[in-house]
Amino acid sequence: MPDALTAAPPAIRWRRSRLLLRDAGIGIALLAMVLFFALAAPDFLSGANVGNILTQITINLILATGMTFAILVGGIDLSVGAVMALCAVVAGTVMKGDGLSEPLAVFLGIAASLAVGAVAGALNGFVSSFWSIPSFIVTLGMLNVARGSALEVTGARTIYDFPDSFIAFGTATLFGLPLMFLLALLLLLVGWVVLTRTVFGRMIYAIGNNDEAVRLSGHRPFTTKVAAFTVTGLCVGIAAIVYVTRLSIANPILGVGFELNAIAAVIIGGTSLSGGRGSLVGTLLGAVIIGVLSNGLILMGVTDFIRQIITGLVIIGAVILDSYRARLSRAA
């Protein structure tokens, strides 16, 4: 089965090169943007600023990597921001527990964050596919459950003062690049391998394209859907840890609206909102475009309100472009 899929017939190979071309299209847009800012804002390409941009996009990149799985399988996850807050405060509470040695506290905190994220994701996937409810509404419910739980756990208070060894990750660098960004990149790479080189990945695309056809061919979309949403949740758990190490606090109101940024990165990256079409390479480019835009406009001195308008226009522009691409691939 995997062999049959990897040794693709010419038609699919043609489709792949189209896909490549499409990602290149987003890449060209990003390149143009970088060139523009480099000319308009002299410090834009400085090492420190590039480091800033990479740090600033890391959380969104991790969330968007997870979101790509949910969207590719034909769903969406609106709960990621709220679940991230829940993961962070649970991790924070565990880490501040009495009588734990520092390494154990850090280990348990990270484990708790990943567990909470994965369970929330699995629940999203389970409820939406078991009862065939649109994940839009299920995850909207989960958004409230998670936000409420985060507030309940903390009594609406901010948790602070974490172990230094843990916080150090937030500013650590490797080869001059932020370590947290390299972690996000590694995660993206793993995700890319899973999506393009495994049966699970192929099933995600197949279900996103035509759920019913997969069912009729004797496969069970249910397990794959639950697994895809679990991946989304697991990424949220990782993003929560990155948040806490970067800012040294965990509070129950963090991450409001982060789901929209993650969705924007995925869509700008050319993944279809209706599922089945898209790639993590696009998601990476989408997240970088959002980060570069926000950073560059501030460096240029563009005011807050205008900055918000421009960001909105770029998202709309990306979706318009995407509609042309969809027509192109149908024509092919």
Binding site: A41, N49, I59, L247, S294, L299, D304
Partner: peptide
């Protein structure tokens, strides 16, 4: 504005500092 928010303030201020 950083909308009262820690993460946004962190990013916005880092960018202001570059500018």
């Amino acid at each position: 504005t950083a909308h009262w928010e820690t993460e946004e303030a962190n990013s916005v201020f880092a960018n202001m500092l570059t500018a």
